[in-house]
């Protein structure tokens, strides 16, 4: 699964970081970074994408 961040939409709300801390971390620039996408817990990542307040996370298989 590939995770893409729309850098214009992301406001660094940290919702994804809360739900999947091994996969997401808000950077110092206030935009989320994707860590270890390969080892992602797929369910948590799907939750994170669904719950992102700005819809900034895109998933592709």
């Amino acid at each position: 699964m590939r995770v893409e961040v729309d850098r214009d939409l992301c406001v660094g709300s940290g919702t994804c970081e809360l739900l999947a801390p091994d996969v997401f971390e808000v950077g110092g620039d206030g935009v989320v970074r994707v860590l270890q996408p390969g080892q992602a817990d797929e369910g948590a990542v799907r939750d994170a994408a669904a719950q992102c307040p700005t819809g900034a996370l895109g998933l592709a298989d």
Partner: peptide, 19 residues
Amino acid sequence: DDPRHAKIRRIVSKAFTPR
């Protein structure tokens, strides 16, 4: 409104994350 809202908000985003 965005885009200025998002740019200014990001200045402090990191400080309010769970980590």
